[in-house]
Amino acid sequence: MIQVECPNCGLRNASEFRYGGEVNPRPPQPLAIGDAEWTDYIYMRRNAAGVQTEWWYHRNGCGTWFLAERDTKTNAVVRTYLWGK
């Protein structure tokens, strides 16, 4: 099992966390864009084969959502950090 470093609690087994998917920023001007752009935001994914930035949630721990950079080919976690840091 891979381990993920929670920014609050340290290195823990991945089973303690919930995976939240790749970071998918909301459209900056939600009212200005059309249906096609909304569809891209809701459904289309980069699905990177390599290092991607993604959300994790420490479900069985401190209950914090945080960001991780993980290589999806090897599952090696490059770094984890709180949003805005």
Binding site: M1, A14, S15, Y19, G21, N47, T72, K73, N75
Partner: peptide, 13 residues
């Protein structure tokens, strides 16, 4: 598996 990946490693879990 519980998270997205291109790795085909198995797990004991």
């Amino acid at each position: 598996d519980p998270f997205a990946s291109y790795s085909m490693n198995g797990s004991l879990a």
